[in-house]
Nucleic acid binder design. Structure first.
Length: 229
DNA sequence: CGCCAGGCCGTGT
DNA sequence: ACACGGCATGGC
């Protein structure tokens, strides 16, 4: 599946951001939101000099809500972002580098305690902003696993479903060297989003999907119907 | 106009 | 643990 997607879409060079902190902001803002809107919010933040830790610390919540409006849920997301900066200031001397020094399991646990941070946001921050090597999943991978019957029972939109997808990805890359795995996890998720945006929405658009024709598991070809869920 | 988007949270069972 | 509805905005 990795090879098929890489051949179809090429290297994705994720995460699309200039700084690690910008990755964090994007990870929050893209929750259940089209990336286009996130780009507009990030532009607003950039223009307001609020794209840095210091900048975000200084901006008022009301102003922050106005700036991130294009990516939706302004009340929840502004509160969550302020909480992230507060944690950074109180526990990690306001430094992402300090935060990144925690061992992966402790760091993940800490992130999950933050308001507005669930499994996907935590793992995106770990993998793309803090340089930790770990597999991650998202709604697109969940749909792919469901529609191509990669898991039995099919993964649900719950913590259990998310963990099942993480295990599946871990096993799939088991044979690869640890040094390569970070890059493979990085690229695989980016490719998942690439195919997801094109073909794996709530309503599947199978026409032209590189997975629909080629993906086989245990010798069984796995085209999927345009189911809706 | 209706449906959708790179989730997460509170409540009820 | 899981089901379900709410959270908000802009694009198509």
């Amino acid at each position: 599946m990795y090879d098929i997607l890489l051949a179809a879409y090429g290297r994705q060079a994720w995460w699309p951001a200039q700084t690690s902190f910008e990755v964090v902001l994007g990870a929050y803002l893209t929750q259940n939101t089209a990336w286009r809107g996130v780009e507009r919010s990030l532009e607003n933040l950039r223009a307001a000099k609020a794209l840095t830790i210091e900048g975000l610390r200084m901006v008022s919540v009301a102003e922050l809500q106005r700036l991130i409006r294009p990516s939706g849920f302004p009340v929840r997301k502004s509160t969550a972002l302020k909480a992230f900066v507060e944690m950074l200031d109180l526990e990690f001397s306001g430094s992402l580098e300090t935060l990144a020094r925690l061992p992966t399991p402790a760091l993940r646990s800490r992130l999950l305690k933050l308001p507005g941070v669930g499994p996907e946001t935590a793992d995106a921050i770990l993998l793309y902003a803090l340089g930790h090597s770990l597999p991650m999943a998202d709604e697109y991978l969940r749909r792919i696993a469901e529609r191509h019957r990669l898991l039995n029972p099919p993964p649900l939109r719950t913590t259990g479903g998310y963990n099942a997808l993480i295990q599946l990805t871990t096993h799939a890359f088991e044979a690869d060297l640890p040094a390569d795995r970070a890059q493979l996890f990085n690229e695989f998720h980016a490719l998942t989003v690439a195919v997801g945006k094109a073909h794996c929405g709530r309503i599947a658009r199978c026409a032209g999907c590189p997975l629909a024709a080629d993906l086989t598991l245990n010798g069984v070809e796995l085209p999927h119907p345009a189911i809706r869920k």
